[in-house]
């Protein structure tokens, strides 16, 4: 059975016909060609497929595409501003060498952004606990944790600046 869904992906409205069994991650990769979201496992453990759905991090392998109908989805491709700069969390990962092979990175960054949105000033232990659902085999997490702490600080600074500018 196929059905038609409409949703917003990285700020653009898209309408596609999908099989009901199609997972959100496969919809993003196969139907929209957004291959930045990765599939690293088949048991919803690894977190390589994390995207934001209506602003919250979701393992896109645990959600059917039809469940994302009428939602706003942000993938790693949509995280950075359009001007070619990086999101503060992406920049922190680069600065602190928080990635090696890059395969877990999109999910890791998307999870980290959500973690910091929830908890703007996390401790190291909170970062480690918060990333428990994202597996990285390369970095040993050391630099990822450093990056998330730095990214959190940068996001706080950006928020402060934005608030100051708004006044």
């Amino acid at each position: 059975m196929a059905c038609t869904i409409t949703l917003t992906v990285n700020g653009k409205a898209v309408t596609r016909e999908v099989e009901e069994r199609t997972l959100l991650v496969h919809f993003l990769r196969e139907h929209l060609g957004l291959t930045g979201t990765h599939v690293g496992c088949d048991t919803s453990q690894c977190g390589a497929c994390v995207v934001h759905v209506d602003g919250r991090s979701v393992k896109s392998c645990t959600m059917l595409a039809v469940q994302a109908a009428d939602c706003a989805v942000t993938t790693i491709e949509g995280l950075a501003p359009a001007d070619g700069t990086l999101h503060p969390m992406q920049e922190a990962f680069r600065e602190h060498h928080g990635l090696q092979c890059g395969f877990c990175t999109p999910g890791m960054v998307m999870s980290a952004v959500d973690l910091v949105t929830d908890n703007p000033d996390p401790s190291e232990a909170e970062v480690r606990e918060g990333l428990e659902g994202n597996i990285c085999r390369c970095t040993g997490y050391h630099n990822i944790v450093k990056a998330v702490l730095a990214g959190a600080q940068a996001m706080r600074s950006a928020d402060t600046e934005a608030a100051a500018a708004a006044e």
């Binding site: 680069r94 890059g102 999109p106 960054v109």
Partner: peptide, 21 residues
């Protein structure tokens, strides 16, 4: 030196085998 390969991985523009169509 900060890694030159990072930007593509951080923005979802890496090209892994499964990504190729």
């Amino acid at each position: 030196v900060r890694r030159r390969e990072d930007k593509r991985f951080l923005t979802g523009r890496g090209t892994y085998t499964e990504d190729i169509r």
